[in-house]
């Protein structure tokens, strides 16, 4: 059984379709990247996967569980950052990661060590005693990721995890994601950064119009191949609608 699955998800916001039959799965030890244009449905799919949005139809499963009704034992193995992380602006960086560790079910005796390790790993030591509200956008993003991985999840979902990061931050997050996957975690990442995706992902799924329209092999000329796949999907959709009209 794959730890992360989306199966024929459909959802609309008013008249606008957001998901139109999206399916994908992530295996243990695999990093899968979802790429797509703005409004393609990536973040909506991730919100479903985290339990924040119940789809009109279709199913999402995290470690076999419905994400909107996850039991604590399952949730303990799950980490995510979709939009804003588990960060309180009034707490310091250290307090935030320790708080996140507690909420993720890390035993109290291990919280301080787990927090210190992840703060160091994401190079946040210099800001350990700074309030989260005072951090730059890049450091705040790294803190959000630190709070999502402080418990060593076996399933991780990240939405645009490097959007605000400097090159060093990008490398840190890439190494973190890769090492979690190497330890057996299933990781699903959404991104606009095709070059970055090519470096970290095992598989790249192109999401367009609320559904998966194929995969790209990570490697050179990702941008050209991405647009070719999107164009191909648009042409196929136009032909299908012309056929049904006739």
């Amino acid at each position: 059984m794959n730890p992360l699955t989306l199966d024929h998800l459909h959802h609309r916001f008013g008249d606008r379709p957001a998901l139109a039959g999206l399916s994908l799965a992530v295996a243990p030890g695999e990093v899968v990247a979802m790429v797509g244009l703005n409004g393609a449905g990536k973040t909506t799919a991730l919100r479903v996967l985290v339990g924040r949005l119940r789809p009109a139809s279709g199913t999402a499963r995290v470690l076999g569980a419905d994400p909107s009704r996850m039991r604590p034992t399952t949730a303990h193995r799950f980490g995510h950052v979709v939009g804003v992380g588990l960060v309180s602006p009034d707490l310091t960086v250290s307090e935030n990661v320790r708080t996140a560790a507690l909420l993720h079910g890390v035993p109290r005796a291990e919280v301080a060590d787990a927090g210190a390790v992840v703060v160091h790993r994401l190079d946040l030591d210099a800001w350990a005693d700074a309030r989260a509200r005072t951090l730059s956008a890049g450091n705040a993003q790294r803190l959000g990721i630190a709070c999502a991985v402080v418990h060593g999840p076996s399933v991780l979902v990240l939405d645009e995890p490097t959007s605000a990061l400097d090159p060093r931050g990008v490398v840190l997050v890439r190494e973190l994601v890769r090492s979690l996957a190497d330890d057996g975690a299933a990781v699903l990442v959404s991104s606009h950064h095709l070059d970055e995706v090519a470096r970290v992902a095992d598989r790249v799924v192109v999401v367009h119009g609320g559904r998966s329209v194929g995969e790209l092999a990570p490697g050179p000329e990702m941008e050209r191949r991405f647009f070719a796949r999107v164009l191909e999907a648009d042409v196929a959709a136009l032909e299908a609608s012309a056929g049904s009209a006739a």
């Binding site: 985290v50 339990g51 034992t73 995510h80 939009g83 804003v84 960060v87 709070c147």
Partner: peptide, 18 residues
């Protein structure tokens, strides 16, 4: 309002307990 509530989903400590 600012979206932080979304982070309380999928936690070992359920959001309603929080």
């Amino acid at each position: 309002a600012d979206g932080r509530a979304g982070a309380y989903f999928g936690l070992a400590t359920p959001r309603w307990t929080v």
